[in-house]
Design a protein around this nucleic acid. Sequence first.
DNA 1: CGCTAATAAGTTGTGCACGACTAAATAGCG
DNA 2: CGCTATTTAGTCGTGCACAACTTATTAGCG
Lengths: 155, 155
Amino acid sequence: MTATGAEPRQEGSLLLDDQLCFALYAASRAVTARYRPLLDELGLTYPQYLVMLVLWERDAGYAVSVRDLGTALQLESSTLSPLLKRLEAHDLIRRERRPEDERSVAIRLTETGVRLRERAHAVPVAIGDAMGLTREQDAMAKQLLRLLTANVSED
Amino acid sequence: MTATGAEPRQEGSLLLDDQLCFALYAASRAVTARYRPLLDELGLTYPQYLVMLVLWERDAGYAVSVRDLGTALQLESSTLSPLLKRLEAHDLIRRERRPEDERSVAIRLTETGVRLRERAHAVPVAIGDAMGLTREQDAMAKQLLRLLTANVSED
DNA sequence: CGCTAATAAGTTGTGCACGACTAAATAGCG
DNA sequence: CGCTATTTAGTCGTGCACAACTTATTAGCG
């Protein structure tokens, strides 16, 4: 029994500090909080930043639909629709119904949206620095989180 | 170059799948989603469940203040105050000003709140099962997430 | 003791997140 | 071809999360 990070005494413990879920929830909010001042300078929230990452990556070839964004980020249209309206209000994207399928809405970066990418490069560098993990720890964390997400998303 | 979980090509990549932050964000929401049907049966949301964990753990000795909950869960009073009102409306807790310091509000479990603990024991068991991590992976994930949280919360 | 600093909880406004539902358009089967 | 089932976005309501601010109370210095 040490004072640091002991293991759960038993299966089904109800102690907060035994819960992986709480470590996950706390880490996620702490990381988002660390992003906030950096993203404020770009005029983005954290979920908006994630949407922009997808668009910067894929906008080149074919336009990205709301559905594509939802698949990439695992978000519902009820979350994305208002968020995309706010990005459009800030003149970072444009939304237009696809002529070939009027159900679908194509999201395209504006010139302002494309240019923002340059300023965004500083963000992952600063965050990577703040996270302070070794290359191996970073890789291990990503691997475990993806395994966890996959397991928990089954059925 | 394998197809599975490759490493970032460079520092400061803007590719979504290189971002640890996204793996974290996605995992946190996926885990919360997995909790939802289980917690629905208890009439709790996920943050409410976390508050109840703290109360079940500490209510025995001295009463827990809103501030104590905020410290334990890293949440602001502006998040906790309305949440605690909802728990009180469901008759799980009671809130009362402390006589010895009228600024502070003591949170106490009701009988209903105490009894709910019995039904809650099934939750971490089911979640642990769904997560499907080995004991070593679970411990490693918790350790990395705590390190990350500590690093990112500095200053 | 008096008065300013601080602390504790709460309110308000903005922006996610998601379930339940709706409207419009397309796919595809009989 | 016509009609039903599916697909795609979107709206609405509830509940976090957090910054900025307010109010009430206590601490502690001169």
